[in-house]
């Protein structure tokens, strides 16, 4: 496949481009190479799909893992005064081990180990699952501590009120404590969501073609780094801005019970 040189391209370009200063012409040429020539914008769209799937999957997994761990850790801390059941003791040590390992090793290393040692996926679907599982397990460790702070922020009286009505421990957690905890931790959780979205850019190390990987692919075709990488940054930025806005709306809706 022949590369269309700048000189060739500018000769066939529309006249309004030919009237521009030379540095702008170069920019237009690079933009054309990055997005338009051979419909390369498809690369970005395909990459975004992977990025979104991995982010959403990992987010859901992370929140589930995080809440389970937080509930275990809180039940352990709350039962200090009485005798602590053996099951809770074992689960708590397991959770602590998990938190130590996950928070103590780099995400990139975790991806490499999952991708090439533990799961070793062969298919596209397998790689996506591998990415989701790795990022979800990683995110779960951070969500766990956020969720724990949220559960502890709900006053003890709420648990007592729930239990005194005859709800069991898990009903009280699910119906009374966790909804209030979620409201309290939403800003921190939003932060984690944004971090997670940006962390998906690492999945290219297990050969997942997310939006970052696709930008790299374009660079390897055009030998131009400027437009692809700047566009990539802008894409992430726009998603984060939209996400922040949505979270703000959601937060305001949850706060409706606070109005006097």
């Amino acid at each position: 496949m022949s590369i269309i040189t700048f000189t060739n391209w500018i000769a066939t370009a529309p006249s309004w481009i030919q009237g521009l200063p030379e540095w702008l012409q170069t920019l237009c040429y690079q933009f054309w190479q990055t997005f338009i020539y051979q419909d390369r914008w498809h690369f970005f769209v395909d990459g975004l799909k992977i990025t979104f799937i991995v982010t959403l999957g990992a987010l859901a997994l992370g929140i589930i893992i995080g809440i389970i761990i937080a509930v275990i850790r809180v039940s352990y801390d709350n039962s200090i005064e009485k005798k602590i059941p053996l099951v809770i003791r074992i689960l708590n040590s397991f959770c602590k081990l998990y938190l130590t390992i996950i928070r103590g090793t780099p995400m990139m290393v975790q991806l490499l180990i999952m991708g090439f040692v533990i799961m070793v996926p062969k298919t596209d679907g397998g790689m996506i699952v591998c990415g989701i599982v790795t990022l979800g397990i990683n995110s779960g460790a951070y969500v766990a501590e956020i969720a724990r702070s949220g559960i502890m922020s709900v006053s003890r009286g709420q648990t007592e009120a729930g239990r005194s009505l005859g709800l069991n421990y898990f009903q009280t957690m699910r119906l009374i404590i966790i909804p209030q905890a979620v409201k309290n931790i939403l800003p921190a959780l939003g932060n984690e969501m944004i971090t997670l979205l940006k962390d998906t850019s690492l999945v290219s190390v297990i050969a997942l073609r997310d939006v970052t990987k696709q930008a790299q692919n374009i660079v390897s075709k055009t030998y131009q780094a400027y437009i692809p990488y700047i566009s990539l940054a802008v894409i992430y930025l726009i998603i984060v801005i939209v996400l922040t806005k949505l979270l703000g709306i959601f937060e305001r809706r949850l706060r409706k019970s606070d109005h006097r």
Binding site: E160, A161, S164, P179, S257
Partner: peptide
């Protein structure tokens, strides 16, 4: 057994 607390403990949400 119904219980009423000093600090009400209504569910704020």
């Amino acid at each position: 057994m119904g219980m009423v607390f000093q600090h009400f403990n209504l569910f704020p949400h």
